[in-house]
Design a protein around this nucleic acid. Structure first.
Length: 575
DNA sequence: GCCGTTTTCGGCCCGACTGTTTTCAGTCG
């Protein structure tokens, strides 16, 4: 229900904008949608308890609307708005340079209500004759429509990071560049990245040269815009990259601003105002001339002026960080804290490398323990192990453990959760492993409640230690299966089970948005690479990013624990 | 439509860039 209400409010917000409504009314609906989407309790429950109206951003009008949707399943006001325009009209927003105002004009004057309509109108040269539109705008529309079909507006975090790091190293060696940092959603470690933001500080006389070096570099495919402080390009990797250059003293302000998120910035500026200051991307300025202008050399100083402790970039989503950092700080988990991992495949099933090679790689990464979890027998496509081959693998692991003591190899399995929630090995076989990762690899299309029950049943098996990739999503490729993640976390909490953050760049599943709830419920997290080769073991770094973004600390992540603590955790689960 | 440590009305974050204009509206982040 929460998502349904959020969807409706989001659409209302956009449709009101297209209708030319007061923009703050639109923002109010959009804010309400965002607030409702991230509630950890259902709207119905909050409504029953009479607590819904206490939530910031939900006033009298929105509350009435929520009540109507809960009661009748729809919102009359929303239906009425929708009837004013064809359904397809919202897709026009996907086009770069098209916003609500242009949509209104295009619809009123030329009856354009879809991307196809717009393309045809451009090709017929109809746009260039509209008031406020000319030839250039028409060309831009056509080019934006063609990039849309190339899907260049969304990228995996790892791909965007790789491209960004190439640019970063190029800029770092330029003499004219004083400071350079990756900002934007990469710095916030979002799982999906729209574009790359690079921030540079340099003397004004050098700016033009740096912009030229950047835009004329061989990694650039196309220049989108070039101004005095900002330049945008499309890279050969098909990712848009924006670069800004500011003065040295402006750098912390600009870094903070261009890291975002937008929602975080809005709150920063509103807090500045309450402190008699105005904040922009370059500096603080005084609203009340009687005050003294604060001196800020770092981002930490900026937060301090606003009576906040330093907020790590990953947490800047206006997701509760402002309340928390007024009086608290947090030391987020980081890569140096990892002592091992639990979900790696070998060539016993569908991994590319041998047990020995995988263990050697784990040693080289400084791990103290290393869990093997090959597929179970039903995963025929992945050469899953039957009971006999499990025993062979266990024998091999015992031998390797006997031969060396630098790293402890743990015996695990990634057992399939079958359609009915039972597991692919009997309890007797499961009892022979040090730990068990249980995952779904089949029958994705079940109803939300069936899928939730399926996973809950598996979690209740006393031999299950860790729930693997809890939604099965493949980012930008396949949505996860429908599942009530709050309920899964509740059950994991009741039964002392761990949930995996699968660190494969395509998965990053558990999603960071649920980590904080898991932490609240004392559900421990395992950061697992799901490695199918020695190189993929290093993917744990992406899992660390998710964990940081999900507010997790060393104590919340079992891979950060000592070997005996981990072994105790697993054996206690079986009691 | 929401909100309040200058409260029940009058604000609501702020600036760069583009493309259209000839001073600015729209979009974007």
């Amino acid at each position: 229900m929460n998502n349904k209400i959020a969807d409706i409010f989001e659409e209302v917000s956009i449709l009101l904008e297209i209708s030319g409504e007061n923009k703050f009314k639109c923002i109010a609906y959009s804010n309400a949608a965002k607030t409702i989407r991230v509630l950890s309790e259902s709207v119905e429950a909050l409504l029953n308890k009479g607590e819904l109206q206490n939530i910031k951003g939900i006033g009298k009008g929105i509350l009435q609307n929520i009540f109507e949707i809960v009661e009748s399943g729809e919102l009359f006001f929303h239906k009425e708005l929708k009837q004013k325009f064809p359904n397809s009209i919202l897709e026009l927003l996907k086009i770069q340079g098209v916003g609500p105002k242009k949509i209104k004009t295009l619809y009123d004057k030329l009856n354009i209500a879809s991307i196809d309509d717009l393309k045809i109108a451009c090709e017929k040269n109809l746009i260039a004759n509209l008031d406020g539109f000319r030839e250039k705008t028409q060309q831009n529309f056509l080019s934006a429509i063609s990039s849309l079909s190339k899907n260049i507006d969304k990228h995996l975090y790892c791909d965007a990071l790789n491209s960004a790091e190439i640019i970063l190293s190029f800029l770092k060696i330029q003499n004219e560049v004083e400071q350079v940092e990756i900002a934007g959603s990469i710095r916030r470690k979002k799982e999906i990245i729209g574009d790359i933001d690079i921030l540079v500080s340099a003397k004004e006389i050098h700016r033009e040269k740096i912009f030229n070096l950047f835009t004329q570099h061989e990694f650039v495919e196309k220049i989108l815009s070039k101004g005095e402080t900002k330049s945008s390009v499309i890279l050969k990797s098909q990712i848009q990259c924006d670069m800004r250059i500011v003065d040295g003293f402006q750098f912390p302000f600009a870094l903070n601003y261009f890291t975002g998120s937008k929602e975080h910035n809005v709150e920063m500026r509103s807090r500045a105002k309450k402190n008699g200051l105005s904040l922009n991307e370059y500096e603080f300025s005084l609203l009340d001339k009687k005050n003294k202008l604060p001196n800020c050399k770092t981002e930490k100083d900026i937060y301090k002026v606003l009576n906040l402790n330093y907020i790590p970039s990953e947490l800047r989503e206006n997701f509760g960080e402002f309340d928390f950092f007024e009086n608290n700080t947090i030391e987020l988990v980081d890569e140096t804290m990892l002592k091992g991992t639990f979900h790696c495949h070998t060539n016993f099933s569908d991994g590319k490398n041998s047990l020995e090679d995988m263990v050697e790689k784990a040693k080289s990464l400084g791990f103290l323990y290393f869990g093997i979890a090959d597929h179970s027998k039903v995963a025929v496509y992945a050469n899953g192990l039957d009971e006999k081959r499990v025993m062979e693998q266990h024998k091999k692991i015992d031998e390797l453990n006997f031969k060396q003591s630098q790293i402890k190899i743990l015996k695990g399995t990634e057992v399939d959760i079958l359609r009915d929630g039972s597991l692919d090995f009997s309890d007797e076989v499961l009892s022979k492993f040090d730990y068990v990762v249980a995952s779904i690899h089949s029958s994705f299309k079940m109803s939300k409640s069936e899928m939730t029950n399926r996973i809950v049943k598996a979690l209740k098996n006393k031999y299950v230690s860790i729930l693997g990739h809890p939604t099965g999503r493949l980012l930008l490729e396949r949505d996860g299966y429908e599942v009530d993640m709050n309920e899964i976390i509740n059950v994991a909490s009741d039964f002392g089970k761990s949930i995996e953050i699968n660190s494969h760049p395509l998965r990053l599943d558990l999603d960071w948005r649920f980590c904080r709830y898991a932490k609240e419920k004392n559900v421990k997290i395992a950061i697992n690479p799901d490695a199918h080769s020695i190189f993929e073991i290093e993917n744990v770094k992406y899992g660390i990013s998710v964990a940081r973004k999900g507010w997790l600390e060393e104590k919340d992540v079992i891979n950060c624990w000592k070997l005996d603590e981990v072994e105790n955790f697993f054996s206690n689960q079986k009691r």
